[in-house]
Simulated assay, not measured.
Amino acid sequence: MIYKIQEEFQKRFGEGAVCYASPGRVNLIGDHTDYNLGFVLPGAIDKAIYVAIRPVEGTVCRLYSMDYGESLELDMTGSLPEKLWARFIYGVVQEMKKRGAEVGAFECVFGGDVPLGAGLSSSAALESVFGYALNDLFSLGFSRADLARIGQMTEHNYVGVKCGIMDEFASLFGQRGKVIRLDCRSLEYELVPFEPAGCRVMLVDSMVKHSLASSEYNVRREQSEAGVAVVAKHVKGVESLRDVTMDMLDTYKDEMEPVVYRRCAYVIQENLRLLEGCDFLKRGDYKAFGQKMFGSHEGLSREYEVSCAELDFIEEIARKTPGMLGARMMGGGFGGCVIHLVEEQAHDAYLDEVKSRFQARFGQIPRVIDVVIGDGARKLA
C-alpha cells in the first residue's frame, strides 16, 4: 500500500514526500468500560493508514484519498469541508491551532489497509497518522498523549462522534508484541506482553451493521450513571462506576431498577476481568486469559445486552471448538466482529466450520480478518 501511495504522490505532486503510518486497533477485553472511567486493553495491529506528505507555501492543502479516489483543495483557514474524510484532517489541524501550533499547508496522498466497517478504528488511524505527520513535519512539539487528545477532539468537534480516547491512544502508543492496559480515568498506561506462541488473533465479522449502536450506547451510558447516582447518595467520593465495588452495588441494589443493576454489575466485573487477565498475560497463561475473554462476551451479551444473534452464534461455535483459547464480541455491539485467540493448529478447521454454519444460518459467508499486534504511529524510512 505505501508503495502505491508513494507512486501516486509522485504522479500528482512530484518528489520530496515524507511517509508515515498509523495503525488500526483491536481491543482484547474491556468494552463499554471507557466512558465509565475504567480500563481497556487495546493493541495496535499490522494494518494501517499511510500518508505521503510534503509541506507547501500558502494556506491551501491539496489532498488525495486513495481509498475514495477523490481529490480536494482545502483551505485550512476556511470552513468545515463537506466530505467526511476531509473533516478528520481539517479537524486535526484546527485542534492543533487551538493549542497554539503554527501548522503550515501541505500536499498529500493517503490510504490504508485497515478494513472498513469492521470496528478496527480506521478513523482513529487517519487522525493519528495526520497528527503524527504534521507534528513531525512542522516540529510542533506535541507528545503522543497530546496527539491522542487532538484526535479525540477531532471526532467530538468536527465529526460529531463523542468517542473515548482508547482508539487514538492505541494507534499512537502501540508496540509490537504488547497490548496497552489503559486507565481511562488517569490515562496512565502499562505495556503488557502479548506474544502467544503458536496462536493467532483473528476477527470474524458478523456482517451486521451497528444500526442500534448509537442510540443504545447513550441508553447504556444513562443506565450506568443512574447506578452511580444511587450509590453516590450513600458513599462519599463515588463519581463513576470506577469507584463502585460489587459489595456497594449489592448493598443498594433495591434502590435501582434491575436493568440498571445488571448494567453496572457488568462494568464492575469487566474491569476485574481485565485486570486479572493482565496478570495472566504477564505469566504467559494465555489459556486463562482466554477464559476471561469468554466471560467478557457472556457479560456483554446477558448483562449489558449489546450483542446480537450473529455475534452470539459465532462465539458459541468458538467456545465449543478445541484449540480455541478465547473469543468475545468486540466494540460497541449490535454488530461488528468477534475477536478470537486460537491455536494455530485449530485455525483453518474452525474457519471452515464457522463459515459453513454461519452461511447455513444467516445466508452469507462472514468476513475473516487475521491480525498481528504491531507498532503504533511512526515515520517510515
Rank of each mutant, 00 (worst) to 15 (best):
Y3A: 13
K4H: 12
Q6D: 12
E8V: 11
R12I: 05
G14V: 07
Y20F: 15
G24K: 11
V26G: 12
L28Y: 10
G30V: 01
L37E: 15
P42T: 10
G43Y: 02
A48C: 13
A52F: 03
R54Q: 14
P55F: 01
T59P: 00
V60W: 05
M66N: 09
D67G: 09
Y68P: 00
G69M: 09
E70T: 14
E70M: 13
E82W: 00
L84H: 07
R87Q: 08
G91V: 05
G91Y: 01
G91K: 03
V92W: 01
V93F: 07
Q94A: 14
K97Y: 05
V114M: 00
S121L: 08
S123C: 07
A124N: 06
S128H: 06
Y132I: 10
A133R: 02
A145I: 13
D146P: 11
L147W: 01
R149D: 05
G151E: 01
E155S: 09
H156E: 08
N157F: 09
V161P: 07
M166A: 14
E168V: 09
F169C: 12
S171K: 14
R176F: 03
D183R: 14
S186D: 15
E188N: 15
E188K: 15
P193K: 13
P193C: 10
F194M: 11
S206R: 09
S206Y: 09
A213N: 02
N218Y: 09
E225I: 13
A232I: 02
V238H: 08
E239V: 04
S240K: 12
D243K: 13
T251V: 05
D254H: 12
E257I: 03
V260R: 03
R263F: 12
A265H: 02
V267G: 00
I268R: 05
Q269N: 15
L272V: 04
G277H: 13
Y286T: 06
K287F: 00
Y304T: 10
Y304P: 01
S307G: 08
E315H: 09
K320S: 13
T321R: 14
P322F: 02
G326R: 11
G331K: 13
G333R: 01
G336T: 07
G336I: 11
E344I: 00
A346Y: 07
R361D: 04
P366Y: 04
R367C: 01
R367T: 01
I373W: 08
D375H: 15
A377T: 07
K379T: 15
L380V: 15
